[in-house]
Design a protein around this nucleic acid. Structure first.
Lengths: 115, 115
DNA sequence: AGTAGATACATCGTCAGACGAGGTAACGTA
DNA sequence: TACGTTACCTCGTCTGACGATGTATCTACT
């Protein structure tokens, strides 16, 4: 993974919800989609991923159902809830604001005296 | 503070270095500048701030000297080093990349099937 | 048949950063 | 004298990311 953990931190839930807002999915697939969509630059570790699922479920943002695969390992599918969509929207707003603030803080805005 | 801790996380060092890259400063003032520059939307707690100074000093990104105030509390001034400027540049690159990746992950790019 | 690799889920313990709560000290001012 | 501001510092807690490890099923190769 090329992106630092601390820069992902706090954004995993939003990223997962964003994927689930497009279609139901399961852990393994979500992770592959993230890797692919980021051009292999980002990968959530399994412990991170399943930890996020637990949090999101407890928060009522997602619910799950077992897939009916006749073959292969069982799949735990997740679906985003209405509350989850609301949380996603809020997360995106927060992220957008945080981005702006941080950019303005590093961006210079040569407001102060420069000796 | 309106911005969530986890969205700041990993960016405090960069923000502090960015300020020090413009002028030497001390803890209390840096914090005030951050609050002001963010329109009161962001504030580092003291424990966070001084923790960051310790890290940055250990990493050789900053050094300090005592101010020669004749009056009032003493001030521990920080100056960014050459290594610190390099670290800042790298941090900004990493942040820019992380921003892009996260934005692309939530932004949609309706690439996949939508049932 | 046996072995390796991919698919798929799950948990435990560790680490690091943010922060709440607390402390020290000097100064101005009411 | 007591309070508010400036200024620095530390300890302990919480949370999220992750390394390590374990389970089970299927496919491919030998």
């Amino acid at each position: 993974m090329s992106i630092a953990s601390d820069l992902i931190r706090g954004n995993t839930d939003m990223i997962i919800l964003a994927h689930l807002s497009r279609q139901d999915s399961y852990g393994y697939e979500i992770n592959k989609m993230i890797q692919q969509a980021s051009g292999q630059r980002m990968e959530l570790k399994e412990a991170t991923l399943y930890g996020a699922f637990r949090r999101l479920e407890e928060a009522g943002s997602i619910l799950f159902y077992w897939g009916d695969e006749q073959t292969g390992a069982r799949r735990r599918y997740y679906r985003i809830t209405a509350a989850g969509r609301a949380a996603l929207e809020q997360s995106i707003k927060d992220w957008t604001e945080a981005k702006d603030i941080i950019d303005s803080l590093i961006g210079g805005k040569e407001n102060d005296r420069q000796d």
